[in-house]
Write a protein that binds this DNA or RNA. Structure first.
Lengths: 232, 232
DNA sequence: CGAGGTTGTCGTACAGTGTTCGAGTGACTA
DNA sequence: TAGTCACTCGAACACTGTACGACAACCTCG
């Protein structure tokens, strides 16, 4: 059992004022949320901490490991209600919405989380509580894995798509008009009327509400399908 | 309407033997599939084409644009059956499986597709055909968007998770034993029995079959939920 | 035939990246 | 007081994407 990122000695007395891993993780999270993955470099991060560029490497083995820590930190923010508080159905609903909100707070997550498995303690805790929740619906063993996986895959996929669409608006200069213009440029070359209208719906009107409606629609569909397999 | 990556003049006579965008896209796709996103650099790609490092920039504006082209190329491989061939239900099923297979062939997709919206012609065509398919179930307007979005979000999320898990096996040196070891190292620190067993199921036995079963389980759930809303 | 324009290639260079190495500093301990 | 640990950091290496400008091959027009 080799030493991993997650295991750390409880750290002795701080002696003098010094850089800490917690500090690094915190400001890295801030820059990541604000500037995206491309905006995070070890040098810039160190500068933001008034430290030398390579000082970070004493606290964190590598940038990839730092990102692992950040991902796990994000998972730690997700609410997974205790089963039995209000029934499994509303519990899963709350969990799903919390997960989506987490992705929206940390829109860099979809970009990085599909390049590695999440095995940090917070990810494990989330899975553990998720299984407990889905277990309250009567799912056990493989079925519990699959049922929970269905919900999470959908939420992550849906939120990822939402993030991708929002990213476009950022690049287009924060103005919905330009976003719409870009979409129209494409859709005008599409012969299909149904598709053209669909694309148009995606940039006209209440976009925020549309994202939400789309998300809850799929969530309802899945909960509907799941309850056919649930035993209580 | 500014000129975009997707619009290109029909190219005149080739005159002399020269680099083409198609050629670049093709070998870029090969390296991407084989070595992943991190393995693709403009210099290495040019070398593989026996070209100078910066020659590519005459055919492609930027690396990001090249990746846009590659993403759209991948979407072009996805089968979306005509509605009415065998009913919408089996059509959606076939589409979903084709989409998953596409992600497996191009495991770099999840890593990049959440950083930008897919607006290439092939993406549009896929959406268009998808809407036609879901329309055969009686969905129209916003409902059609949402129903199709539910299926696609789930498939992309599920396949992304599968890719992430497989990636771990690669890093662990292609040996399932090491993969299992890594998981056990983590899970042994988890107090919850249910979670420990769940994680163990994920690395023991027929992993390939488990991925497949998990995917089809969720797909069934969604089709079940959708057919409650379908009108035919 | 020769001049000019278009199409395409590519060497050089710049600013940036993650990371290694080894020297250095401060504080605690024997 | 000497030694050891915990920690910082400047310099350097091997990369990266890309702008620029010089060059060459071909086509077209006079």
């Amino acid at each position: 059992m080799t030493e991993s990122i997650w295991t750390r000695k409880p750290k002795a007395a701080p002696a003098r004022e010094t850089l800490t891993r917690e500090q690094i993780v915190r400001t890295a999270m801030e820059t990541l949320d604000a500037d995206g993955l491309a905006g995070l470099s070890m040098r810039k991060l160190a500068a933001k901490l008034d430290a030398g560029a390579t000082s970070l490497y004493w606290h964190v083995p590598t940038k990839d490991d730092l990102i692992d820590l950040l991902i796990d930190e994000a998972w730690g923010e997700i609410d997974v209600p205790d089963p039995g508080l209000a029934g499994w159905r509303s519990g899963v609903l709350l969990f799903a919405h919390s997960l989506r909100a987490g992705i929206m707070r940390h829109p860099w997550l979809p970009e990085v989380m599909y390049t590695r498995p999440s095995m940090g303690p917070q990810a494990m805790a989330m899975g553990s509580r998720g299984l407990a929740l889905i277990g309250a619906a009567g799912f056990t063993g493989r079925d519990a894995d699959f049922a929970l996986g269905t919900v999470m895959s959908y939420v992550l996929g849906s939120a990822g798509g939402e993030v991708a669409t929002r990213q476009m608006a950022r690049k287009a200069g924060q103005f919905v008009e330009q976003l719409a213009g870009a979409v129209f440029e494409q859709t005008n070359q599409i012969a299909d009327d149904t598709m053209r209208e669909s694309a148009r719906r995606r940039v006209e009107g209440d976009i925020e509400g549309m994202f939400y409606d789309s998300f809850t629609y799929g969530l309802e569909v899945i909960l509907e399908g799941l309850s056919r397999n649930a035993t209580e």
